[in-house]
Simulated scan of single mutants.
Amino acid sequence: MRRRATATLAVLSGMGGALLVAGCSQSGIGATGIGAFAGVGPVPYQHASAFMPVGFSESLIGQDRYRIEVKGPLGSPRERMEKIALTRAAEIGKDAKHKYFKVEGVQVSNSCKSYVTGGKPGSMGAGKTKVSAHTILTADVTFAPAPADPSFVETRGAFERYRAELDQDQTSSPPVDPSTAQCG
């Protein structure tokens, strides 16, 4: 498993890190699959990485402002992705000792990228085109020492409350059905 992931990374690096973007349709996803995400449960509360792109990531975009990105399999429910963004915002606030936060500027989009798998020529799977398809939610978060308006949430206790809601949803959410969503 590790060798396969390394080979794919080497191919992407050899291409200057550029990925060919292609449109996905319902038939395209069914034909190529979306790897380990087909028919899986809800998006987990975890950091996303190059090897596990499903989850959340964040970046500092200004003083006391973060951008949180939640990436899930194509067709992931927006409500779950919003809860993950809220939970991550509360966790950042708790860790940085910010008293209040507000989530704003939420956007949802779909992303489809085609890539060619690596490996030795002639080996199983080498040189095949695969599609990576995701739903992406992006939310901007502002932290403040006092609530500037009623939409600010008190950080203390919010992380535990939101995390408990996510854990409950994890057991009651239906599996993601990628055939119901499209990219483009």
Score class of each variant (00 low, 15 high):
1 M>G: 13
3 R>P: 10
4 R>N: 11
4 R>F: 14
6 T>W: 11
6 T>Y: 13
7 A>P: 06
7 A>Y: 12
8 T>E: 14
9 L>D: 14
9 L>A: 15
10 A>W: 05
13 S>V: 11
14 G>F: 08
15 M>P: 00
16 G>F: 08
16 G>M: 05
18 A>T: 11
24 C>Q: 00
25 S>C: 05
25 S>V: 01
27 S>N: 09
28 G>S: 14
30 G>K: 10
31 A>T: 08
31 A>R: 12
33 G>K: 06
33 G>S: 04
36 A>N: 11
38 A>N: 13
38 A>E: 14
39 G>A: 05
40 V>A: 15
41 G>I: 06
41 G>S: 09
42 P>H: 04
42 P>D: 13
43 V>T: 10
46 Q>K: 10
46 Q>T: 15
49 S>N: 09
51 F>L: 15
52 M>H: 10
52 M>F: 11
56 F>W: 14
56 F>A: 02
57 S>H: 01
58 E>C: 02
59 S>T: 12
59 S>C: 00
60 L>N: 12
60 L>R: 12
61 I>Y: 08
62 G>Y: 05
64 D>Q: 13
66 Y>E: 11
70 V>L: 10
71 K>Q: 14
72 G>T: 03
72 G>C: 07
73 P>Q: 11
73 P>A: 15
75 G>H: 07
75 G>P: 01
76 S>H: 02
79 E>S: 09
81 M>Q: 05
83 K>L: 15
83 K>P: 04
84 I>Y: 03
85 A>Q: 07
85 A>L: 10
86 L>H: 11
90 A>C: 00
91 E>G: 08
91 E>C: 06
92 I>S: 11
93 G>Y: 02
93 G>R: 07
94 K>C: 03
94 K>E: 14
96 A>F: 08
96 A>D: 13
96 A>G: 12
97 K>V: 10
100 Y>E: 04
101 F>I: 04
101 F>C: 01
103 V>Y: 03
104 E>R: 15
104 E>M: 15
105 G>R: 12
106 V>K: 06
109 S>I: 04
111 S>G: 02
112 C>I: 04
115 Y>W: 15
116 V>G: 09
118 G>E: 02
119 G>H: 06
120 K>Q: 09
120 K>F: 00
123 S>Q: 10
123 S>Y: 07
125 G>V: 07
125 G>D: 06
125 G>Q: 02
126 A>G: 06
128 K>L: 13
128 K>M: 14
129 T>D: 04
129 T>P: 01
131 V>F: 14
131 V>M: 14
132 S>Q: 09
135 T>R: 00
139 A>E: 09
140 D>G: 09
142 T>P: 02
150 P>C: 07
151 S>Q: 06
151 S>Y: 00
151 S>G: 02
152 F>H: 07
152 F>M: 05
155 T>V: 13
155 T>L: 03
156 R>E: 13
157 G>P: 04
157 G>V: 02
158 A>W: 01
158 A>L: 01
158 A>F: 01
159 F>E: 12
160 E>W: 01
160 E>P: 00
162 Y>S: 06
163 R>L: 12
164 A>H: 03
165 E>M: 07
166 L>E: 04
169 D>Q: 14
170 Q>A: 15
171 T>M: 13
176 V>P: 05
177 D>L: 08
178 P>W: 03
179 S>Q: 13
182 Q>G: 14
